[in-house]
């Protein structure tokens, strides 16, 4: 096989993949639950972007005279919290924190985890065992506990939440990517590329990574759901974003203390978390089925 033929072969494989991906969207739409998930995610993104337009009040304006109003009272859609802040507006703004943390923390974890996973899987040997030992060590900590421990050290704040949850996401990505790389590495297609004298970097970034993309995307989607729950959990424990920033977790934390006086704070903030996470999981399930029904993440 000449190198031109090999290149053509590779290009053809890529084109086949692209064709597959075109029908991916159709498959997702066909799967009604996944489509529902996608719509909710879309609405959520709209809400986060246009929060100032959607919110009926400023989320942080306090008015103690109007504290703990019920649903619909004095024009407050979901009532007010203990400081007289509008619960609805706080939930609308809270979507921003959830989305930012969800996406940024997973990106953080995915980039670092994938690099480590590729390095471990592709080069193997000592490097592999050192990296994976370290990942095993990180895996020994329950996800949320690792994030909690990191937050106690880093201190409250949006960036720190992203870093903490991002680090907790690293070992998972490293394992998934390493597994994929090991599989792809052995495939004939990579052997052809290597026999043509391609450089490591070229092989990894042009061939190995793109070919292991599907499971990584599915895993990342599911991880966003996990990161959103984790952010809410951290804020619920008082270790997340700094008050008075509205986050679903911190609204729930306040709501827990005023459960009797105004259960809406806790109910609706938590419901937002559940619906968001459920939608992402529905979408992720559909994505997995569409990309590869046999794939297990």
């Amino acid at each position: 096989m000449t190198s031109i033929q090999a290149e053509e072969e590779i290009v053809k494989t890529m084109e086949d993949k692209r064709k597959k991906e075109q029908s991916l969207f159709r498959k997702l739409i066909k799967n009604r639950l996944a489509a529902f998930g996608l719509i909710v995610i879309f609405l959520l993104i709209i809400t986060a972007i246009f929060a100032p337009l959607i919110a009926t009040h400023d989320p942080n304006t306090m008015d103690v005279t109007k504290a703990l109003l019920g649903v619909g009272e004095q024009g407050y859609l979901l009532g007010t919290d203990n400081f007289g802040r509008d619960i609805f507006s706080r939930i609308v703004y809270g979507s921003r924190i959830s989305l930012i943390v969800g996406i940024a923390a997973v990106l953080f974890g995915a980039v670092i985890g994938s690099l480590l996973g590729v390095a471990a899987g592709y080069f193997g040997g000592k490097l592999d065992s050192v990296i994976m030992r370290f990942m095993d060590g990180l895996f020994a900590f329950p996800f949320i506990l690792l994030a909690i421990t990191l937050m106690t050290v880093l201190g409250q704040g949006l960036i720190n939440v992203i870093i903490a949850i991002g680090i907790a996401n690293v070992p998972g990505f490293a394992r998934v990517v390493r597994g994929q790389v090991l599989g792809v590495k052995e495939s004939e297609f990579i052997e052809v590329t290597r026999s043509l004298g391609a450089k490591h970097r070229r092989i990894i970034f042009q061939h190995v990574l793109p070919n292991s993309l599907a499971p990584i995307i599915v895993y990342a989607t599911m991880s966003v759901a996990g990161a959103i729950i984790s952010e809410a959990a951290l804020s619920f424990l008082g270790l997340g974003v700094q008050p008075p920033t509205a986050s679903w977790g911190s609204i729930l934390k306040d709501g827990k203390d005023f459960l009797v006086l105004n259960p809406n704070m806790a109910t609706f903030s938590g419901l937002s978390i559940l619906i968001t996470v459920l939608s992402i999981n529905l979408f992720g399930d559909g994505l997995r089925d569409a990309l590869d029904p046999k794939m297990k993440v």
């Binding site: 259960p263 109910t267 419901l271 559940l274 996470v277 992402i280």
Partner: peptide, 22 residues
């Protein structure tokens, strides 16, 4: 079960307290 795996359990706990305790 899909709702179950998506559950923020700290919220579920608070809701259980609201209904079954309070």
């Amino acid at each position: 079960s899909l709702i179950g795996v998506s559950m923020p359990i700290f919220w579920l706990g608070v809701m259980l307290v609201l209904y079954f305790s309070v």
